[in-house]
Simulated assay, not measured.
Amino acid sequence: MELERAKSLTVLAFEQVLEGIVEGSIPFGTLLSEKALAASFGTSKTPVREAFVQLQALKLVEILPQRGCLVLTPGIGEVRELCEFRLELEWTALRFSLERAPERLVAELDSVLARMDGAPLRGGPESYHALDDRFHRAFFAASANALLEGAYLALSPRIQALRANLSTPNAAIVEASRREHAAILALAKAGDREALHTELVCHIQRISDAYSRSIETEAAKAPGGA
């Protein structure tokens, strides 16, 4: 019974901190305290420490002995690699989905896109950021390839954290994102694979460029920055 309770407390701590990181309420560069989090959760430090280990395995944090746990700020090179890998995964999933379950793919994309209109930028499962994540996950849900979907789900927390921390809360940027999602849906409906691939490449490249600019801007603000 005690072992099960300890596991449940670790899961609680992990899920709470993970949610904060991927939604942006725990931003990049935050130094988390085992003691403070344990007090807020009403637990000992052990479940929090175990949660930190799991988050470090996801490459979201770095455990600093005697100091705490640092929420990692990705560099431009890491963002580029993530976006390159993401593009390959998403395009493969889209190809499989168009071959194996095109109606399911289009129906899910259509449903998610409709809910994006007027959605708040962040905060909860119906926020724009959460729906953006769901839109891209739909590529994998219809792909009928569990390994491919699993690879994306393992990467997803880092993608969500980038989106929450580095996407400027700007109406023009959100509208550009929505237009690109609408174009992806239209091309999926038409079954135009060549144009769909081009649109997906442009979409993810724009995201990569925007994140890189945000990192450069924040670096310039830091002491000793340009």
Rank of each mutant, 00 (worst) to 15 (best):
N145G: 08
G24E: 02
C69N: 07
H136K: 04
T92A: 13
R122Y: 08
A222C: 07
R115P: 03
N165G: 13
V106F: 01
A164M: 12
M1Y: 03
G24L: 06
L89W: 12
K59L: 05
A38W: 04
F96K: 15
P74E: 09
M1G: 05
I76G: 08
R137N: 06
L121I: 12
A172G: 05
A146D: 15
R100T: 00
Q54K: 00
M116Y: 07
L148Q: 15
K45S: 12
L196Q: 07
E78M: 08
P47N: 01
S127Y: 02
E23H: 11
F14T: 05
S177R: 06
V61I: 09
N170S: 15
A93R: 06
V201I: 14
I26H: 06
P74K: 10
S97E: 02
C83K: 13
T10D: 02
R213Q: 13
F14E: 06
A182Y: 04
T30K: 10
T92P: 01
L82I: 12
R163T: 15
V11I: 15
V53K: 09
E216M: 11
L185K: 07
R80E: 09
A154P: 00
W91N: 05
L18K: 15
E84G: 14
V61W: 03
A210D: 13
T168C: 12
L12I: 01
A38K: 06
P74Y: 04
S208G: 10
V201N: 09
E2K: 07
A57E: 05
R179N: 01
